[in-house]
Simulated assay, not measured.
Amino acid sequence: MPVSPSEPRLSDDRAACAASIRAGSKSFFAAGLLLPAAVRAPAHGLYAFCRLSDDLVDEAGTRTGRIAAVARLERRVARAYAGDPADASADRAFAAVVAAHAIPEALPRALIEGLAWDAHGRRYATLAELHAYAARVAGSVGAMMALVMGVRDPDALARACDLGAAMQLTNIARDVGEDARMGRLYLPLDWLAEAGIDPDAFLADPRPGPALAGVVDRLLAEADRLYARAEPGIARLPARCRPAIRAAALIYAEIGRAVTANGGDSVTRRARVGTARKLALLARAAAPRAAPRGLALPPLPQTAFLIEAVSGYPPRAARRLPSWWDLTGRVVHVLDLIERLREREAFGRTGVAP
């Protein structure tokens, strides 16, 4: 039978999860400034576990090692849902969050499936296939965060998935060179073919150019379409969370504009959003605004399974842990969580955090 952790252990776990935010999450921290301190704890728990998941797969080295790491993660998710999390701060915090907020297991399982696709070196023939990947590694996180904020309405969840997918596409557009140097390629293969780019030749010698810039621009245009679809869902969030979520969207969309300003070169240059610009976007996010229309748009076909999973897992199905395990408040959106699922540790790995 699981042994309930002590109050000091919970405090230590929360501190460890918060430290992972401070260590490499400048954009997340910037958006979180708009929130009261109490709402951050559940986000920290989800962030820490998702970051741990990404790191375990990414640091496994060989393809065989990465696949084995995915299998270990699947077991850790199962243990968290059984109320017997692995002996790690991120696992214990994650178990508390999913229990307290009735997060169906299908959502973190979708995230792990996306990491498995990475482990196998999967490529994506079309934009639709790329959306299926984004739904897993980013849409799932958007849905989990919405649940932690107490939002379970299918239309609002669909918009949260849109935002997660938009941010993932922005990541891909920004990290083309970084990914290529690790042997990874996420740009739709049919778009590359239309642009006259051979995928294997590009991976062997990744270089910027007008043809590649055109493909990146197409991907950013799709991301912008999804940001627009996501906007009406922000109005359905708790009022005190809306500025932070809107800031997350604005800052990430600005990353895409920085890629464009670099001439679409995300091979030799890394798009950044400076501090002054982030502050301006934070102020813009905090300004009152009327709710736009479009909440009831159907979900992307690739994210529909996430919304259906929540519909079949009502709040009363939540397994409650002891009251002191109840992480109070709601949560900021996963701005940097999505980013960290695509980046590597600053200075010690290939990517450099903005």
Rank of each mutant, 00 (worst) to 15 (best):
A80N: 12
A80M: 10
A82K: 10
A82L: 11
A82D: 14
G83R: 03
D84H: 14
A86Y: 15
A86G: 15
D87Q: 12
D87C: 10
A90D: 10
A90Q: 10
A90W: 13
D91V: 09
A93H: 12
F94C: 00
F94G: 01
V97M: 02
V97T: 06
V98F: 11
V98S: 03
A100L: 09
H101S: 12
A102G: 09
A102R: 09
A102Q: 02
A102C: 07
I103L: 10
A106L: 03
L107Y: 10
L107T: 10
P108V: 06
R109I: 11
A110S: 12
A110F: 12
I112N: 01
E113Y: 07
E113T: 12
L115K: 06
L115M: 10
L115V: 06
W117N: 09
W117F: 11
W117C: 13
Y124T: 00
Y124R: 02
T126H: 06
L127S: 06
E129I: 01
E129F: 06
Y133C: 01
A135W: 03
A138M: 07
S140L: 03
V141N: 04
A143K: 05
M145R: 15
M145C: 13
A146I: 12
L147R: 04
V148T: 15
V148K: 07
R152G: 03
R152I: 08
D153F: 06
D153C: 04
